[in-house]
Design a protein around this nucleic acid. Structure first.
Lengths: 338, 338
DNA sequence: CACGGGAGTGCAAACGATTGCACCTGATCG
DNA sequence: CGATCAGGTGCAATCGTTTGCACTCCCGTG
């Protein structure tokens, strides 16, 4: 019996009284080997409990069938669903995911990307917070890179269509007579935050809406902490960077006696599950985030087969109207306990 | 110049006019090489942009420095924080994470585990939904396994102390005069659900509380859908499997005019961030889930160095009381619009 | 009966790194 | 001045696979 700790091809070969090449071919279904031998080898391999050393296989065969992914924050369901879509698509083609979380930190993301590149044959940067220079370094790595929610040259790109998104949001609000809107922003290094701001500004101008902006963040407490500033603003409607921020803000508004949507409408991006369960339920922009992941893999798969990068793919979101938005209040804000 | 697509050790050796062994030793800081040569080799390697092929290295060196992890659901912040802790601890020791999501499906989890084992030197099963037999198969794999939130023989174990958890919850409720409590359960294959039920029953008996149980699930909509059954029950307090379920239930209760906590108290396990932002904020059991991950790595690291498995490690949670629990209503339920 | 050819098998060279061992060169010592 | 030694360096084996090529049969054919 093999006492190397692990059963290797050569152990099977010896036990089956043949050679490694024959065993390898038999196990991999080569038609060069006679059926009897194949059967015999299979039987022996099973008896010995042989499992091919995948790492040795991939090492010999060339590119690793692993795709590295970075996300800023695993706890945000937006990203976990992107991962779900990406993972399923990649797995269907015999690849697996090496996941890294940057914690919203560009420097950490760069470390991660380099580490992941060492073990992967392809990279997906999801909502990358990398600086321009960091991104260049990533693209210089010897593996193809797809960016999700960030546009880049010489890489695959799959993103949400924020121009359409901003239009949907603002048209919904103007339809409710809101003419002054506040945007509570996301992380400074976020491309999608910049994109939201850019398209909101533009659309606001064309719709004759006054747009104010404040800085925020990506999670519940950022929304909660934005509460006082929001209250001080003269806007009748708020758009938050994402649902987590939105829910945090709703919580603060409730704690401070601000009625939503009577006094203030709140709306947001992403439509993660809690948007439906918050109180009031959040009007939010639903996007097909699992599809974002799938498309990213499609682009990578094509690229790995030598094709050129296709043009950026944009996914149009859909507005889900819930109870957190309503007609604009008239005149000044009702006095609050705040 | 190397036109193999990638710069290899031998390319550096040629360019530096020396041999692969010297280059390897120089780059790895062996003291066998003279300082001048080291400097020269380093310079050449940099100029050529040499990056060691980590896969070849690890292949040669033996065990992969990768640890495979399975979680039932990436979208649940509980798991993402376990991953955060585990990833940080493992990375500090030069290992990385290969993450697989089973989607709460035992069969899928088994597939995953076998796949992960092929590429990892160690395995962490987080809240494994594996059947008894599946678990045995996993433990038979040639890699050490740690289970988080599931007790198993011949493997590392790190878990939440549910006995303490159940006592904290029920004592809080009895302190508010609740004598009839309903538990809204989790996925059938969940060990921690079974454990919660077991310890709740036991503690309820000792505290003279009547405990009812219904089946539920792991996410918001399971909680929402449990609404009608909850309403029909005669309990004055509800304990839900986790915060996601709790928030879903709160949403249904609100939609159906049930006042929380005046008519019904709601409490839950995990204390993920939204517990604080739900309305009313959820009384929940906070646990150090990042630490769960850290400890899992500690156990693995020890095991990889040849030590025996330590005894199971239990983490005691802490009750965070918020506005979703209050004194038991007296008599029958106030008539509702439901 | 010699020969061509196809089917089945095994040898050995890769893949890219690490490392035991042998080798070479000066310097030191007896 | 020759043997000894140590500090540097390179050769070659190795990790577990896959696979091109050479080899051996054996059968059928001219």
């Amino acid at each position: 019996m093999a006492e190397h700790g692990r059963v290797r091809l050569i152990d099977v070969a010896r036990a089956a009284n043949t050679s490694v090449s024959t065993v390898s071919r038999a196990l991999n279904g080569s038609d060069l080997i006679s059926p009897q031998v194949v059967a015999h080898v299979r039987a022996v391999a099973d008896k010995l409990g042989y499992r091919a050393d995948r790492r040795a296989q991939e090492f010999k065969l060339g590119r690793p069938r692993t795709v590295g992914v970075t996300v800023p924050d695993l706890a945000n369901p937006f990203f976990s669903e992107v991962l779900k879509g990406l993972g399923a698509a990649a797995r269907a083609d015999g690849h697996r995911l090496l996941i890294g979380e940057s914690g919203e930190d560009p420097a950490e993301e760069l470390r991660l990307v380099e580490e992941l590149a060492d073990h992967s044959g392809a990279l997906v940067l999801c909502s990358s917070r990398l600086s321009r220079g960091g991104l260049d370094k990533a693209l210089a790595l010897p593996v193809p890179v797809v960016c999700i929610n960030r546009t880049v040259k010489n890489a695959g790109v799959v993103a949400i269509d924020y121009r359409a998104a901003s239009r949907l949001l603002l048209e919904h609000l103007t339809g409710l007579n809101h003419r002054r809107v506040l945007y509570v922003g996301g992380p400074a290094s976020s491309w999608s935050d910049a994109e939201r701001r850019r398209t909101l500004r533009r659309t606001a101008r064309s719709l004759d809406v006054t747009l104010d902006e404040i800085d925020g963040g990506w999670s519940g407490h950022h929304g909660y902490e934005a509460g006082p500033t929001v209250l001080r603003s003269r806007a009748t409607a708020v758009i938050t960077f994402n649902d987590l921020v939105g829910v945090g803000l709703l919580s603060w508004l409730h704690d401070n006696g601000v009625e939503v949507p009577a006094e203030l409408s709140v709306t947001s991006y992403d439509d993660i599950p809690i948007a439906a369960y918050s109180r009031p339920p959040l009007t939010s922009l639903r996007n097909e985030r699992a599809r974002l992941g799938e498309l990213a893999w499609k682009q990578l798969a094509g690229r790995l087969e030598g094709q050129d990068w296709p043009r950026p793919e944009l996914l149009t979101p859909e507005l889900v109207v819930r109870a957190s938005t309503g007609p604009a209040r008239r005149g000044v804000r009702i006095r609050t306990r705040g």
